[in-house]
């Protein structure tokens, strides 16, 4: 799904440069614990979180996240926005809460890595690493 479409259906505000919004999102992950993101999030996902601090940006850079949606009306500070712009990570905010955001994206066809990989695998369970497959 296009990031711009996601922004539209979630009524998000974009805090960073508009030029960062032109991209396609394949996977979504939601967590407040960055430990969970490092362990289970698929590389290159869109992150939904209620945690607003510098560590979210550092983790995003490590995991090459495609963007961050801050839920429940939480706002990143000016310094964080500036850094995200430098790192080309779009920051979005929405007044909707975590559950609602996940539900809306799910009902619009977005999936996390396990379900999408299961579907791609013809319904069979797979043990997949968060690391992209060998090329």
């Amino acid at each position: 799904m296009q990031l711009k479409e996601i922004i539209n259906i979630l009524s998000c505000n974009s805090k960073t440069s508009e030029t960062l919004l032109d991209k396609d999102i394949n996977y979504v992950y939601a967590a407040d614990m960055m430990s969970d993101v490092l362990k289970s999030c698929k590389i290159g996902s869109l992150l939904i979180t209620g945690l607003v601090n510098q560590q979210v940006l550092q983790v995003s850079e490590i995991m090459d996240l495609q963007g961050i949606i801050f839920v429940s009306g939480k706002e990143p500070g000016a310094e964080m926005i500036e850094e995200a712009d430098c790192k080309n990570i779009p920051l979005l905010t929405t007044d909707k809460h975590m559950f609602e955001v996940c539900g809306i994206l799910y009902s619009n066809g977005m999936r996390g890595k396990e379900i999408q990989q299961k579907e791609e695998n013809g319904g069979r369970d797979t043990l997949q690493s968060v690391i992209p497959d060998k090329r």
């Binding site: 407040d32 614990m33 960055m34 430990s35 969970d36 490092l38 362990k39 945690l51 601090n53 560590q55 979210v56």
Partner: peptide
């Protein structure tokens, strides 16, 4: 509160 300390670091 900073989003860490879930006890996943070393196992990861």
């Amino acid at each position: 509160e900073m989003g860490f300390g879930a006890g996943l670091g070393l196992p990861n």
